[in-house]
Nucleic acid binder design. Sequence first.
DNA 1: ATGTGAGGCTAAGTCTACCTTATGCTCAAA
DNA 2: TTTGAGCATAAGGTAGACTTAGCCTCACAT
Lengths: 303, 303
Amino acid sequence: MLKNMPSLPSIHAFEAAARHGSFAKAAVELSTTPASVSYHVRQLERQVGVPLFMRHAQKVTLTEQGEAIAPELTALFASLRATFVNAVDAYEARLSLTALPTFGTAWLTPRLGRFRKKHKDIAIALDLSETAQEIGAGRYDAAIRNGGGRWTGLRSVRLFPSVFMPLCSPALKSAVKHVGDPRRVLDAPLLGRPDWWTAWYEQRGHRGVDLTKRFGTSLQAEYLDAAAAIAGQGVTIGSPLLFADDIKARRLVPAHAFVADSGRAFWFVYPAVREESRKIAAFRDWIRAEAEQANAEYASLMR
Amino acid sequence: MLKNMPSLPSIHAFEAAARHGSFAKAAVELSTTPASVSYHVRQLERQVGVPLFMRHAQKVTLTEQGEAIAPELTALFASLRATFVNAVDAYEARLSLTALPTFGTAWLTPRLGRFRKKHKDIAIALDLSETAQEIGAGRYDAAIRNGGGRWTGLRSVRLFPSVFMPLCSPALKSAVKHVGDPRRVLDAPLLGRPDWWTAWYEQRGHRGVDLTKRFGTSLQAEYLDAAAAIAGQGVTIGSPLLFADDIKARRLVPAHAFVADSGRAFWFVYPAVREESRKIAAFRDWIRAEAEQANAEYASLMR
DNA sequence: ATGTGAGGCTAAGTCTACCTTATGCTCAAA
DNA sequence: TTTGAGCATAAGGTAGACTTAGCCTCACAT
């Protein structure tokens, strides 16, 4: 008896019909036809093997058994719905982000407080890792990535270009004033990614420059190089946009006016299928506005 | 968010997968394919908008949300199943019968104790009414009816033929010994249904007999006439099978040896769709056996 | 290192079950 | 008597569920 569960539409139809004492009203609630309700109630009775409604000419009344199970089913439906609603709420209350360490440390973290202030119901979980984490697989909701802006299955919002320029502490500026000329030896070591230095020189017309001798300590991330530069340990290369706050506060200054463009950009990316997600939309709109403001500030800073 | 409930198969698939931590094992439990489980879990995630499983190369693990809702769903499923199982049990524990008053009073009620003894878990609710009640509409599970045995949508089990003969108390027998001859006036009034008396005389070759003067009190049911006959108030006409107990106990005796046959019979009838019902099957088998025994006893009684 | 099998994903095709539409029936109220 | 409300039923269309088949990845063996 009762080998396989009756179908949910049948149970739902019966539950609504029992609550209203009418197939027609149940049909309105379920936005379907009375015929459908009739079909499903009969279906349920057939599967369970117990008559639930007694049919009279123009009304239906519950049988003893129908009377017994209807309230239980109503309660179960409420629980079922609540379970999913709670899950959605909990899920929408926590945005899980993954970003590159430098971006997260230098740019995002200082601004996150403002997001929290604006959206008190959304908590942020931030993962900072060098390798791009899979998003949309359950672990992370969205990411900030550096690249061309084309990822299949993902929507991307452009934040600002990925550019870099030599940066150093104000105290060191005069010591490295010849940084633009690769032939001149500096009084301070270079910091930051060697490939960026190479690219920076190349964009200024200096090809095949050998910089291997000029580097100081090799650090793991750009923001660590920046911290070293702030401490006066050398001249690093990095994004004036990411370190705009340090530049604004004059902890860092451009060691040279030329800004190289990597041709790439920073993007906020999220799965296309989650376009509807409230928390993602909220963060997207917020970070886009923050980036625009940062772009504007940067423009005025460099003017 | 969450406009319409996710489908039950999807929830079921997820619940089983969560319990086993494996789509393949869940598929075995649900006796379906892993592909189906995969499809349904994805379906559920799509409808709810929350990732529930993280897919790895050859295993899946629950996400935080999946972990949260899985046990709730397991409990809800158990409740849902229990609700229906209880309803079935309650329903199967009470057999609702409708029968003709005379049959119920004279034949069925004295025997019901034996059924209860044999099936302690099935309670009997007996309705006795002159008009044939609808069965299979929720109110009554089965009926004992008198007729030809052909009712559409119903299964019928023949119990015994519908026959009738004059019956009176032993004390009155000599006073009504000429009952077989309609021209002889009796010292006692006739009881019971006039049409049966007419039919009885007709089957013995006496046509157009006027009996209107010969009746005593008109009672509403045959068993009341039988009671009156037992009290010596007259000679009634009724079924020697239904009143076999009274005949056996010599409260009643045949006033004449001829037994008229109505051409009809008593049948136990129940909806064809409920062939599977345990309680109906139990009662059917029991009443068939009782009727056979009654038939046998009647045969020996009349020998 | 290289099969091999387990476990999951995906695509395509089939089929079931649900829904709709349309019609008929019964009873109550006008 | 008529009209309308409410349910049942039949027929037909369609979306969604299920199956089948094939592929991919990784673990665990040779």
